[in-house]
Design a protein around this nucleic acid. Structure first.
Lengths: 325, 325
DNA sequence: TTAATGGAGTGAAACGTTTCATTTTACCCT
DNA sequence: AGGGTAAAATGAAACGTTTCACTCCATTAA
């Protein structure tokens, strides 16, 4: 491996001069600068990132901590993040699991983090932030000068979907909830309950955990009641798909018997039969915002600006009564 | 940040002793060892990864270079890789774009690489390998003591699919090709042509580029011919899906009018109407193999063992004539 | 008693950069 | 010609580890 020492020797200058020339800092005459740069090319020199990071106390890497690679959900967020990183001189370190997340964060191998993994508890994040380490969280409402929550506007989407159902005269509604520890689930459920209350509707809430199977089981539970709901709101699309599967097995059809709405707009939702009404957002934009704010914070010390990521209701066949708008 | 110096001072020993104690090397009395460890805990000490890497000339990170995050295709491979990495003390650096790939590799920020990005040319990989840098390639047939190709057994899957079509009496076949520069496309096409030749079949090959739209266009081209094929083999599922869409628009049905087969077994294939026959593999296992061999090479100097990843044909409705097995 | 042995611990160099403080060089102005 | 100044270049310290080579001391063997 060729080092800066070799380059300096070849260019006939001191190591310092070589460093200044390479980094375009300090004061170096144009002629010598050129000589150094040429020498670097000739020797195929590439600075050792570790030595540099050690000295500069900066890694030029941002870490993304998600709970797993799987799922179109994360994909699009990652692509959004990546699209922003591309235009900077930062690297991306993607860590799909909380165990190694701890190690990476503690060893300060990144300059900042984007977190979307509810398995990582709040406490270590707050601790990191207290050392002025910047973090963007996509899955919790933590706030702090060094922590930026960038959350979905869950309530907005729920309101739109609710209105859509209500305007079609559907009044016997049920909500299939997601995982208990999920922030988004709580917001979606609360928004739904608020709407119900404002419209003086009595609604039922059935537990679930975001998996297709839990939606399936929720349906089996609901379908045992004497009076069936005529609209069901699932806290995500997977559960809506499970719910629809159970309905089919009971000989029921959506939306004629029960209108079904999901959340997230996963790709599959559009391909189901019937296509599933859902609430979507631009996940690409979401990731991009996160990266943009983090980079701005790191490079230009622009303070974090909390904001909500807009969501919108996407009406599809699973909840459109024939003759409805 | 607390350094090893602080720990040493607190434990009342030299820096050397602290280092030995923490790394369990050298000769340190049990009592002092314990004192050092306790001090480290009390001070919440975590070694600086850069200083360590700089000194040890090892990063304990492996790099994965893919062309983008999107696509269920990469997801499962990544999960397979990750599942292996988890049990080691390595980190994962995922880089979804060839531009930064170059930087990372050149700056030696990883100890080894897994490459699945045809936009990265062979030459830099060979160059790296010449410095004894180990690389697993998933998308090309490069071979070298330090380069391990881990490729799909494309021919196997194609043979099975071909037999399936042929045994149903389908003899007018066409092949919709993928991107020109793709190794897998070349193998699939060649295997198909070989089969056709062995069965004395005259077949047509239509160009494509792996996108759904190119499958759609290929179909429009094919459907103009006087004599339609009765079986079409697409080099991947996306194109098969595009092909089916075009067929529908022309009022044709699969498999009755044309039997359609894809390749890759993407999740959507199973959900199409009709479900798309395809050729699948365990991508999770694929990724896991790659990671396993790389780690074994790095940690235990076990030489690379080239192997083919098995594929198998998955018959579904899009190619099963009624009454067929 | 002395020499050899080996366990426990230490000092200092090294990894490859960056950057502060300083020196050298070149130029300009009276 | 000489002092002043700015530009250009340099030496050396520092970043936080690891590790080589060495010392010190107690124990054992002769």
């Amino acid at each position: 491996m060729t080092t800066i020492r070799d380059v300096a020797k070849r260019a006939g200058v001191s190591v310092t001069a070589a460093s200044y020339a390479l980094n375009d800092t300090g004061t170096i005459a144009e002629a010598t600068r050129k000589r150094v740069l040429d020498a670097a090319v000739e020797l195929n020199y590439h600075p050792n990132a570790f030595a540099r990071n050690l000295k500069k106390r900066k890694t030029h890497t941002i870490g993304v901590f998600i709970s797993r690679f799987g799922g179109a959900f994360y994909e699009e967020i990652l692509e959004g993040i990546h699209s922003v990183i591309l235009d900077t001189d930062y690297e991306l370190l993607v860590c799909p699991e909380s165990r190694s997340a701890r190690r990476i964060l503690l060893h300060r191998q990144v300059d900042g983090a984007i977190v979307f993994d509810s398995k990582i508890p709040d406490e270590p994040l707050l601790n990191l932030a207290s050392y002025h380490f910047p973090i963007v969280v996509l899955d919790r409402a933590l706030q702090n000068d060094f922590i930026l929550p960038l959350l979905l506007d869950n309530a907005q989407g729920v309101r739109e979907a609710f209105a859509h159902l209500y305007q079609q005269g559907l009044q016997r509604m049920a909500f299939v909830a997601g995982a208990e520890d999920s922030f988004d689930n709580a917001e979606r459920r609360d928004a739904f309950l608020t709407e119900a209350q404002q419209h003086s509707l009595f609604v039922t809430v059935v537990p679930g955990n975001f998996t297709e199977i839990s939606g399936y089981e929720a349906a089996n539970l609901i379908l045992q009641s004497d009076i069936l709901p005529n609209a069901v709101f699932c806290a995500n699309d997977q559960m809506a798909i499970g719910f629809l599967r159970a309905m089919r097995q009971h000989g029921l059809r959506a939306p004629a018997d029960i209108a079904v709405v999901g959340f997230d707009d996963i790709p599959l939702a559009r391909y189901m039969d019937p296509p599933v009404s859902t609430i979507g957002t631009s996940r690409f934009e979401w990731g991009a915002s996160a990266a943009r704010q983090l980079i701005d914070f790191l490079d230009n010390e622009i303070p974090f600006q909390p904001q909500r990521i807009p969501t919108r209701f996407l009406p599809r066949a699973s909840s459109m009564l024939s003759g409805a708008p």
